[in-house]
Lab assay of single mutants.
Amino acid sequence: MGFKLLSKLLVYLTASIMAIASPLAFSVDSSGEYPTVSEIPVGEVRLYQIADGVWSHIATQSFDGAVYPSNGLIVRDGDELLLIDTAWGAKNTAALLAEIEKQIGLPVTRAVSTHFHDDRVGGVDVLRAAGVATYASPSTRRLAEVEGNEIPTHSLEGLSSSGDAVRFGPVELFYPGAAHSTDNLIVYVPSASVLYGGCAIYELSRTSAGNVADADLAEWPTSIERIQQHYPEAQFVIPGHGLPGGLDLLKHTTNVVKAHTNRSVVE
C-alpha cells in the first residue's frame, strides 16, 4: 500500500471513529477524501466538511520552486461564519470567499490569524475590503508590521502568557507558548472536538522541520505538551499544512522538532 493511500485511509478511519463516538456532533463529509496538494491548482481553494458547521479550507501556493498546501478553518456561528487564517495570499483568499459563498452561503463576518507569517495573514486586506472584521493577538499584529505583512485590524486580548485561553464565538483560542513562531495560536472547536494546530503542528508525513527561522526550538516541545494537557479530548487535529489526523500529530511534531534540534547540535 502506497504512503499517500495509507495517509488518506488514516484520515478516513479517524473521521469514521469520530462519527461513531459522537453521532450528534459529527456529520463528516462523505463526498470524498481530504484534498491534497496535487489536486488543488494554485489560485483555487477546496472546502472539506469535518463536522456539522465545521470545515477546513485548503489552498496551495508556490514557494521556492515548489507547491505547498495550506489549511485553515471555518466555523459556523449562528447565521454567520468565523474564518481562521487566510488562504495564503490575496488571490487565494478572494477564491476562498467565493467558494464559501458557493458552498455554504453564509457571510464571513470575523477572521482570526493564528500567527504573523504570510500563509496566515496574506489576504487580510481582501477580507477587510469584503467587510470582514480581522483579528490577531497584539504580538501577531506587531510582528506582521515588522515583517511588512498585512496586519489584522483588531487585537485579541488575554493571550499574552503561555497557557492563556479565551473564548471567541464558537471557538476557544489558546496560546501554548512559542513553537513554530513566538505568537502562534491554537484554535479548538469544543462542539466538535476539532483542534486546529496551525503551523505549530505537523502532518504525519512530514519528517523535516522546514521553516524554523522564527521558531523557538527549545520551547516548542513544552508548548505541545500544554496543548495535549489542555485538549486531551480532541479527536480531529488539523495541521497548518497537509493531512489531518488525531492527537498523534502532536507527538510526531515533537519528535521531528527534537530530531532537528539534535542534528543542529551535532553539526
Rank of each mutant, 00 (worst) to 15 (best):
M1L: 06
K4E: 07
S7W: 10
L9A: 14
L9N: 13
V11D: 09
V11S: 08
L13G: 05
L13P: 07
A15M: 07
I17G: 13
A19E: 15
I20S: 08
A25G: 14
F26P: 08
S27Q: 11
S31C: 06
Y34S: 15
Y34V: 15
P35L: 14
T36Q: 11
S38W: 12
S38M: 09
P41L: 11
G43H: 10
E44M: 10
V45P: 11
L47A: 03
Y48G: 10
Q49P: 12
I50R: 02
I50Y: 05
I50K: 02
G53T: 11
W55M: 00
H57W: 00
I58G: 04
A59P: 05
S62I: 06
P69L: 15
S70N: 02
I74R: 01
G78V: 08
D79E: 12
D79N: 10
E80Y: 06
L81M: 07
L81G: 03
I84E: 00
T86E: 00
W88G: 00
N92V: 00
N92R: 04
A95M: 14
A95T: 12
L97Y: 02
E99H: 15
E99P: 04
I100P: 00
I100W: 03
I104D: 01
L106I: 13
L106A: 12
T109N: 13
R110E: 09
V112H: 05
T114R: 01
D119V: 03
V121T: 05
V124I: 08
V126R: 05
R128F: 12
A129H: 10
A130C: 06
A130G: 10
Y135F: 11
A136S: 09
S137I: 07
S139M: 13
R141K: 13
L143H: 08
L143S: 07
E145R: 14
V146A: 13
G148A: 09
G148C: 04
T153N: 09
T153S: 12
S155V: 14
S155M: 12
S155K: 12
E157F: 11
S160L: 12
S161I: 12
S162F: 12
G169Y: 05
G169F: 06
G169A: 06
E172M: 07
F174G: 01
F174S: 05
F174A: 02
P176K: 01
G177C: 04
D183C: 00
N184R: 00
V187T: 02
Y188C: 03
P190W: 08
S193C: 05
G198I: 05
A200N: 02
Y202L: 15
R206C: 06
R206L: 15
T207M: 12
N211I: 07
N211K: 08
V212I: 10
V212S: 12
V212T: 09
T222F: 14
S223L: 02
R226H: 06
Y231M: 01
Y231D: 01
P232Y: 08
A234Q: 01
G240M: 04
L243W: 12
G246C: 04
L247F: 09
D248A: 11
L249A: 01
L249S: 04
L250N: 03
L250M: 09
K251L: 12
K251I: 08
H252Q: 05
H252A: 04
H252W: 05
H252R: 02
V256H: 04
V256P: 02
K258T: 13
H260I: 08
T261Q: 10
T261Y: 08
N262S: 11
V266D: 15
E267F: 08
